[in-house]
Design a binder for these strands. Structure first.
Lengths: 281, 281
DNA sequence: TCAATTCCCGTATACCATACGAGAATCAAT
DNA sequence: ATTGATTCTCGTATGGTATACGGGAATTGA
C-alpha cells in the first residue's frame, strides 16, 4: 500500500427508510414530540452526536478514508458493529457529518442583521462556504446529488435565496440563479480546498509537481498545436503559483457571474415580461 | 453488501516516475523517437490502449467501481497482476482513461473552422464537455486537481483559451477567465451527469426520492425559518423536475458568466489600464 | 427472579490494490 | 541445440473496506 490512493464513499441513495434518516438529521430540532423513551433495555453508551463529531474530526485530521466505520469505532473505543445501533449505515453517518458542517456556516437567518448590498450578502455566503471547505476539505469528495436534507443544507439554501429576492427576478429565475451560484461557489471552493489538501498530504507543492513534469514542454508539447497557450505563456499570462491562479479565478468568476445576474435583473426590471434570454446586449 | 455505496479512487499524486506517466499519456503522439524495442524477452499479449479501452468500457457500463484492476483484468482474460506490466498502478490507468475521454471532445484545433462568435465557440466547448460527461458520468467522481497532462487535457485548454483571445483581455485575465469557465462548465456538467447516473443506478427518480421525504415538509420544516424558500414555493418558482432545474441553471449560469466576461472585456477595451475591478457599473 | 427489551460486538463474507517471487516465453550468442 | 539474459504472466499473501448474522450482556418492570 502506497498511500497514494484513497477511496471515497459516495452517497447515492437512501435505500433504507427515509423517515429514520430525516429523524436523525433533525434530531436536535423539533425534539418537542416524543422522545420519552425510558423503558427497558441496556442503556446506550454513545450518542449520535458523538459519532458525527468523531467522524468529522477523523476526516479533518486524517482524511475521509480515516472516517471509516472501523476508524470511528476505534476512536470511540467500541467495536465496529456497535455503530450500527446508532446509524443504519455509513451512508447515513456521512449525511449527518455533511449536514453538521453545512450548519457551521454563520449565515444570518430571517430577521437577523446582514450586509445591505445583495452582492455583499452573496459574498458572505461565498466566504462562509469557502471557509467551511477549508476546515473540512473532504467535503469536496462527497457527492452533492441527493444531499442530506437537514437543517444545515436548508439554512444555506434559504439564505442564498433570500439574498436574491431584492433583485426582483421572477421566482423561477431566482431559484435558477441560486442554483447557478451554488454550483459555482461549491465547486470552486471545493476545488480550492482539495488543491491545498493534495499539497499537504503529498508533501509536494504544485510547483514542484509541475517541475517534475518538465519533460512535457521539452519532449511532448507541440507549439504549433497550442498557439494560444504558447502566446499566454510568452506574455507571462500564467500566475506564479497554482494557488494564486485558483484564488484569482474564483474571485473573477464569481464577480462576473454576479455582474451577469445583476445586468439581467436590470434588463428584466426595465421590461417586466416573462423570463428573458437576450444573450448580447 | 447493499450496492448502495460505491468507492471511488482519487488520484492525488504521481509518486512514481513522472517520466513514465508522461510517456504513457503521450504514447500515440511523438512516436518518432525510439520505440524500436524488439530485442529479447516474452512478447506482450496486451497493449496499453487495450487496458484503457477496457477500463473506460467497464466504467461506462457498470460504474467506476467496475473498473477495478481485477475487473479490467477479467475483461481482458488475464490475471490481475498482469496489468502491472503495462501500467505502474491504478492511478496511472485512471489518468490514461481520463485523458482518453477528454480527447474525445471534438474541438477544432488551430486553423480549423469554428463558429464566428466567441460565445458560440465557448458554447461548443460547453456542449462537447457536457456530452463527454453524459457518455462517461464516472468522470465526475475523479479529482481534477493535478489532472493528467496528456493530449486530451491540453487540447481542451488550448481550445478554450483560443476562444477568449478575440476579447483582447490581458493575458492574465484571459487565463483567469478560462479557469473560471472550466470550473463552472466541468462542475455543472459533472453534476448533471452524476444526477442522471444516480437515477439510473438506483432505479429511482429524483421526484420519487423527494416524495419519500414528504415528512420533511410535514414534520420538520419550519416556515418561519425559511420564508424565502416558502415564498418561492408558493409562487411556483421551483421547476417541475430536478432535471429541468439542473438544465435551466446550467444554461442560465453559463450565459450570465459569459455576459459578465463580455461586459468586463468591453470595459477593459474602453479604458485600457491594467486589470480592473469595478463591481457595479 | 423472570421476561422483555435494548445495546454490544466477534466472526464471516466478499470486495479492493498491490508487493513479492516463481515460472514461462522469447531472442541472441555460443 | 543449449545457455543466459530479458521480459511478460500471475498465484499467493497482506492489510484494508462495509456490513449480515447471531449470541451474549445489561437494564427495567412485573
Amino acid at each position: 500500500m502506497h498511500g497514494t490512493l484513497c477511496t471515497v464513499t459516495v452517497r447515492h441513495s437512501g435505500e433504507g427508510q427515509p423517515e429514520r434518516t430525516l429523524a436523525l438529521l433533525w434530531r436536535n430540532r423539533k425534539p418537542a414530540a416524543e422522545q420519552v423513551r425510558r423503558t427497558a433495555g441496556r442503556r446506550p453508551s454513545l450518542d449520535v452526536d458523538g459519532l458525527v463529531r468523531a467522524g468529522i474530526q477523523l476526516a479533518d485530521e486524517r482524511g475521509l478514508d480515516a472516517a471509516s466505520m472501523g476508524g470511528v469505532a476505534k476512536a470511540l473505543g467500541v467495536g465496529t458493529m456497535t455503530l450500527y445501533t446508532y446509524v443504519p449505515s455509513k451512508e447515513e453517518l456521512l449525511d449527518l457529518m455533511v449536514d453538521e458542517i453545512l450548519a457551521e456556516r454563520q449565515l444570518p437567518g430571517p430577521g437577523e442583521p446582514r450586509p445591505a448590498d445583495w452582492r455583499e450578502q452573496v459574498e458572505l455566503y461565498s466566504e462562509q462556504t469557502r471557509a467551511m471547505f477549508q476546515r473540512h476539505p473532504w467535503l469536496a469528495r462527497v457527492s452533492t446529488v441527493r444531499p442530506p436534507v437537514g437543517p444545515g443544507m436548508l439554512a444555506g439554501r434559504e439564505y442564498l435565496l433570500s439574498t436574491l429576492l431584492p433583485l426582483d427576478l421572477s421566482p423561477r429565475d431566482t431559484n435558477t440563479a441560486a442554483l447557478a451560484i451554488t454550483t459555482y461557489v461549491d465547486s470552486a471552493a471545493g476545488l480550492e480546498a482539495e488543491s491545498q489538501l493534495v499539497e499537504r498530504t503529498t508533501g509536494q507543492s504544485h510547483e514542484a509537481w509541475w517541475h517534475e513534469r518538465n519533460d512535457l514542454w521539452e519532449t511532448y508539447f507541440d507549439v504549433e498545436r497550442h498557439p494560444a497557450m504558447t502566446a499566454i505563456w510568452n506574455a507571462n499570462g500564467y500566475q506564479d503559483t497554482v494557488h494564486e491562479a485558483a484564488t484569482d479565478s474564483y474571485r473573477y468568476g464569481l464577480d462576473r457571474l454576479l455582474d451577469g445576474i445583476q445586468a439581467q435583473a436590470a434588463r428584466h426590471h426595465a421590461s417586466p415580461s416573462g423570463s428573458e434570454q437576450s444573450p448580447t446586449p
